[in-house]
């Protein structure tokens, strides 16, 4: 995966969560499936997407929440 693709993927994931903030809770598994479709032409594997997601979480661009199941949300939502 090139740095450019990685950046695109990162922006897409964070953008998606931002766009639906307060309307829809994305489970990590949903994000991975969604991105697999979105980046099908670039041949990204699930592991590629998961590793980018891991970096996003490490950088705290997104954080995990729990409501019956785990979901991704914006750090601002953390109390």
């Amino acid at each position: 995966m090139t740095d450019e693709t990685k950046k695109k993927l990162e922006d897409k994931i964070v953008g998606l969560v931002k766009e639906y903030d307060g309307k829809k809770r994305f489970k990590p598994v949903d994000i991975v499936k969604e991105m697999e479709k979105e980046f099908a032409d670039e041949g990204l594997s699930k592991d590629d997407i998961k590793s980018v997601l891991k970096e996003i979480m490490n950088d705290e661009k997104l954080v995990y929440g729990y409501a019956g199941g785990s979901f991704l949300t914006l750090p601002d939502n953390k109390g």
Binding site: M57, E60, G65, Y66, G68, N77, K78, G79
Partner: peptide
């Protein structure tokens, strides 16, 4: 139960 509780980088380990 649940909500936002956690430590940096981890999505598990702290039960809200």
């Amino acid at each position: 139960h649940g909500g936002m509780a956690g430590v940096r980088g981890y999505g598990a380990g702290l039960v809200g």
